[in-house]
Design a protein around this nucleic acid. Structure first.
Length: 431
RNA sequence: GUGGGCGUAGCUCAGUCGGUAGAGCGCAGGAUUGUGAUUCCUGUGGUCGUGGGUUCGAUCCCCAUCGUCCACCCCA
């Protein structure tokens, strides 16, 4: 035997046993987004490397060590997208979607790539559903996005497992001032900092705020607070946001130490987190990025967005036992045949039924085998009903209806009468 | 990139204090002719992740390597 080729580490196959859950999640998300007036946008998986360097930030881990970057055949540096926001902005700019005070509500879904060591809830190719809006500077759109996600969790039945963490990281200027104060405070106490945080002091001091080290967290209790450094506008907007969330009945936890990893965020940042997924508890996160469009070559256009990790959502649905049984249902009907004439009749009947009942899921047995084995497969398929055709029935235009789950007598019907029977028997499934 | 656990049939796992392996599930066939899920019988199925080393002999010991899982880092 030839050597087997394996998938790339951290890039998983999605098998039939899981695809139904994915379809259900994706459809539910698309449906909720549609109800809020968001439209889908699609863009390529590969972009010029420069796009991510300029948006995410040169010194972030993503850009420094996690990007899949290659030389294209013309030696241009290209990168498998590590996130969607930058791509979305690029596409909008390229096609003039943000010109002339236009407002956009957009979403996208698809794979993202980051060269990390895989673990629970983290893969090298993972999938996000992202939502972005442009052209609205006020906090009402911030609230809308959060409210929308809350509805989504409710729809999916995972609300109880998620809590909303909220913060404002202020304007660029406010944050710079705060950064200085924080660095001053921590620099005087370097000896008390954990090793990782000492490194971050030089590179990305704000990240120290959400350090997992207990001693560092204790040290931060007396550190200057980001909240005290917020600019007036950010304070006002944050107050409006919380007011709107209160009005919508959405509870949240203000976490003054919540900062986000990507450089382009400002003002509102939020995360939906769970304790059910181990170390990767963030299922959905985002924030405002008012400077990004300009940074990527557009006129100043405010934006806000978030992304959810589809794998994490799947894990959460499983962990909380919130997968509707209906989504994994097999076919409604399985057709069993014996004899050559019956085979011909069965194909004709199956096609007739598929035409008459567009929502019917019907499998015609293929591949031969004894009657007995065909029934075994019919049973295993999960079908509620087996249609049984032998040569005798075929010649007389008849077919046997056998219920595989219910306690009902098998009956023989004219083939022409089957669709009527199925549509009443399977009314719930076919609706 | 760092650390730890694990790699035995399609799946879940057992096992040999070193003498080339087993269960359950699954799959296939059968238990009267054209009727499944229960039960019974039979069968299919593994160079014990890969490569070295020690040994008369290794799946079991040692080393390396790859894969996988979990955690750190970081993030959805």
């Amino acid at each position: 035997m030839a050597k087997k080729i394996q998938s790339i580490r951290g890039m998983n196959d999605l098998l039939p046993s899981e695809s139904a859950l994915w379809q259900y999640l994706e459809q539910t998300v698309a449906n909720v987004l549609g109800r809020y007036g968001y439209q889908e946008i699609r863009f390529p998986i590969v972009e010029q490397t420069e796009l991510f360097k300029r948006s995410i930030g040169e010194v972030t881990d993503i850009v420094e060590k996690e990007m899949y970057t290659f030389a294209d055949r013309n030696d241009e540096s290209i990168t498998l997208r590590p996130e969607g926001t930058a791509c979305c902005v690029r596409a909008c700019l390229q096609h003039g979607l943000l010109d002339n005070q236009q407002v956009q509500r957009l979403w996208y879904a698809g794979p993202m790539f980051r060269y990390e060591k895989p673990q629970k809830g983290r893969l090298r190719q993972f999938h996000q559903i992202g939502v972005e809006s442009f052209g609205m500077a006020s906090a009402d759109i911030d609230a809308e996005m959060i409210i929308l996600t809350a509805r989504l969790w409710q729809q999916l039945g995972v609300s109880d497992a998620l809590t909303l963490e909220l913060n404002s990281i202020g304007s660029l200027e406010a944050r710079a001032a705060y950064k200085e104060a924080l660095v001053a405070y921590l620099s005087a106490r370097v000896d008390q900092l954990d090793e990782d945080s000492v490194k971050r002091l030089g590179t990305n001091p704000l990240r120290i705020l959400d350090s997992k080290s207990a001693s560092t967290q204790a040290l931060l209790n007396d550190a200057p607070s980001l909240t005290d450094y917020l600019d007036e506008q950010s304070k006002q907007d944050f107050a409006e946001l919380t007011g709107l969330l209160d009005a919508a009945g959405i509870s949240y936890r203000i976490n003054p130490r919540l900062v986000r990893g990507l450089d382009y965020y400002n003002k509102t940042v939020f995360e939906w987190v769970t304790d059910k997924l181990g170390a990767q508890g963030t299922v959905c996160a985002g924030g405002r990025y008012d400077g990004l469009v300009e940074q990527l070559g557009g006129k100043p256009v405010p934006g806000i967005g978030f992304a959810m990790g589809v794998e994490r959502l799947c894990l959460l649905s499983e962990a909380t036992d919130n997968i509707p049984t209906s989504i994994t249902a097999g076919p409604d009907v399985y057709v069993v045949v014996a004899g050559d004439k019956a085979k011909l009749a069965a194909v004709a009947l199956a096609e007739q039924l598929r035409s008459e009942l567009p929502n019917l899921k019907l499998i015609t047995h293929c591949g031969g085998g004894s009657f007995k084995s065909q029934f075994k497969k019919a049973d295993k398929s999960g079908a509620a009903i087996a249609l049984v055709l032998g040569d005798d029935e075929a010649e007389q235009g008849l077919v046997n209806i056998k219920w595989l789950r219910a306690e009902k007598e098998q009956q023989t019907l004219a083939q022409s009468a089957v669709s009527a029977l199925l549509s009443s028997e399977l009314a719930a499934e076919l609706s």
